[in-house]
Nucleic acid binder design. Sequence first.
DNA 1: CGATTCCTTGAGGCATCTCAAGGCAAGTGG
DNA 2: CCACTTGCCTTGAGATGCCTCAAGGAATCG
Lengths: 264, 264
Amino acid sequence: MPTAIHQAAPSASVHIVTREALRAGDAMPSPLKTLCSTCHLKDLCLPCGLTGSDVERLDDLHFARRRVREGQHLYREGEKFQFIYAVRSGTFKSSVMLKDGREQVTGFQMAGELLGLDGLAAGKHASSAIALEDAEICAIPYAHLSELAATSSDLQHVISRLMSREIVREHSLMMLLGSMNAEERLAAFLLNISQRMKARGYSASEFHLRMSRAEIGSYLGMKLETVSRTFSAFQHQRLLEVDKKHVRITDLDGLQQAFDLRVQ
Amino acid sequence: MPTAIHQAAPSASVHIVTREALRAGDAMPSPLKTLCSTCHLKDLCLPCGLTGSDVERLDDLHFARRRVREGQHLYREGEKFQFIYAVRSGTFKSSVMLKDGREQVTGFQMAGELLGLDGLAAGKHASSAIALEDAEICAIPYAHLSELAATSSDLQHVISRLMSREIVREHSLMMLLGSMNAEERLAAFLLNISQRMKARGYSASEFHLRMSRAEIGSYLGMKLETVSRTFSAFQHQRLLEVDKKHVRITDLDGLQQAFDLRVQ
DNA sequence: CGATTCCTTGAGGCATCTCAAGGCAAGTGG
DNA sequence: CCACTTGCCTTGAGATGCCTCAAGGAATCG
């Protein structure tokens, strides 16, 4: 199993499962699960906010389901934009590269979240996406989604809203990067992960981080050593217990305060 | 004339000019100018990328033209989202407020640029917009734009692309905030302004900044004193001449290098 | 003409970075 | 099965870039 995130695994080897293949009776247990209307993520993902009939219309999207192994790219900066991706399972990071080879992580995506919306602007991806663990995604052809949106103003509105949400999300991150110190940044990050885990039915207080200290650092605008030290500081303050990538928040309110002091 | 950006001017007093009023033969010299198809900004603004017939369809949007005086809010964080705004003239800043009253500037908008796209996500504005000088905007009712987009997949695509562009823009800013030092940040900022001035037919090397040092600092994630010092440093390096808000770039390549070293 | 706002500059402090060393866990090859 | 490598994390010590605090100047306004 490839452990390195930085190694460049060829994306050409990605296994593609089409709906046709699924219908043909592949190893997959339940072909219906690729339909939006029966997806367990429909309240988090693209269909969120749509009524029954519109969700069923989404089923007409001929999208492929694809496995992405840990360390593999889902897409790369500069590649032609064709699909919007919805995470079914696993975690991704998206990042942009700097001239000198360092990366700036722009986000982490979990089940139900969308990837690739930045590609519309110029018709090619403005960032790269890499799986942080073995993952599964739905690849939604943008052209089809567009067509479909033309028939439903509700769907069209949902897409716009999802893009807008991405803009708002980035505002928060700018606020974080622009005006918070190391402890506030890490607290904000952990609280955000905690909320998203909760929304997915996992524990809000105990979870496994899929990203390295360096990736957290890049995302939060600090060095990996500072991330590590801040984790230790939180542990000394009895806000949480941390062992490598395993985190248990023991004082959610305290953590909230470490961050609330400044923001909102 | 109100000089303070921070003072809260009541937006209720904003003067609204409808197309009907214009047609009725107001003081305005050329009523036709409110139409997208004859607007001098159509290559920068909403119609950008649309063909003739679609641009003319945009003329069916019943949008108001509005003056906004220096220091006045165009909209405030939390207000109901109804319009997307296109800047006709003048400069705006958009910002989000922190609990402790400080602001994080999230962007500066010039003629032809759009404001308010972050409001779609939750139906209310996620940021505030304030005029940095007397300005004029087109207030485009989102509901109407939506309807119109349903009749043209090209228009729909253009809107999505504009939102995507905003996401990409914020990626760059995250890169800036996350991994650049003070000189690189200010160089990036000035080069960006320079490009946008050029695209609008102004000099790329000499311009007047509409924002204060504190606002630049907030945007770039540094203190106003550091902004000021970095301006002085650039002047000593003979990259530019600066007198308060007036900037003349004397060595564009040098400035490019101060920034290129790291990025892209 | 005083009040106010904005900008510049200096001096000192501190949060974070840089550099360096060591530990742990997992994978690899003999 | 054990030595060795590799990747990731933690911690320390010292350096530094930016912040904080402070003072003063210039422009604008009432």
